[in-house]
């Protein structure tokens, strides 16, 4: 504190001394052919004074501003570093996940492949079963149709044969044939099977 007071005092004294020294410089005649060296000194002194005054009265604020600004920057820098670390960690996790994705993809692909094969096998089995069923049904249907056709054919043949036989008998049956049939009736009725 004492040091700061002495320092301010020294600065103020120096500034006043410089101002008092600059008076003769301002009073001097300018050189017609160019700027006087005193003028230059005057300006230099003014500038120094200006700088000292500026440092005296605005230095704290400027220092505080820059100090605050530095802290803000350091804080932002720390945040940025944290964010960077987090980003790197996330990147690492993402990279790890990407690395896992390949194996997961392979696992899912294998699972899908396995399920697809199972589905295909099931469909194939179903198709085979259906085909066998269709084949059996077709065989049964064909057999049925064939048997029906055979039955119809035999029935038709039998009907036509019987019809022809009836016509022949109707036209050609003689009394002798009838007598023979009556005798046959009598013989059969007299036999033991008739009883």
């Amino acid at each position: 504190m004492i040091y700061r007071t002495k320092h301010r005092f020294a600065v103020s004294a120096t500034a006043l001394a410089l101002l008092s020294l600059s008076g003769p410089a301002l009073a001097a005649e300018p050189v017609e052919s160019g700027a006087s060296p005193m003028t230059l000194v005057f300006y230099a002194i003014n500038f120094v004074v200006f700088v000292l005054l500026l440092a005296r009265y605005a230095g704290g604020s400027v220092k505080n501003y820059f100090s605050l600004r530095a802290r803000t920057i350091f804080s932002a820098f720390a945040n940025l570093e944290g964010a960077l670390r987090e980003a790197r960690a996330q990147a690492a996790r993402a990279a790890a996940r990407v690395g896992q994705l390949a194996s997961e993809k392979a696992r899912i692909e294998a699972l899908i492949h396995q399920q697809t094969e199972q589905e295909v096998e099931a469909i194939r089995q179903g198709a085979r079963s259906l085909a066998a069923q269709i084949r059996r049904d077709a065989e049964v249907a064909a057999r049925s149709v064939s048997e029906k056709a055979v039955r119809q054919f035999r029935a038709t043949i039998a009907r036509r044969t019987a019809h022809m036989a009836r016509e022949m008998l109707r036209d050609h049956l003689r009394p002798a044939d009838q007598r023979h049939l009556v005798e046959n009736f009598v013989q059969q009725m007299a036999g033991p099977e008739a009883r």
Binding site: R154, I157, A158, A162, R166
Partner: peptide, 19 residues
């Protein structure tokens, strides 16, 4: 009924053939 007619025999034969 004792049916030994030819019509009956023909009918039986027709059934036998058609079966």
């Amino acid at each position: 009924t004792y049916d030994l007619s030819l019509a009956n025999k023909l009918k039986q034969a027709e059934q036998l053939l058609g079966a």
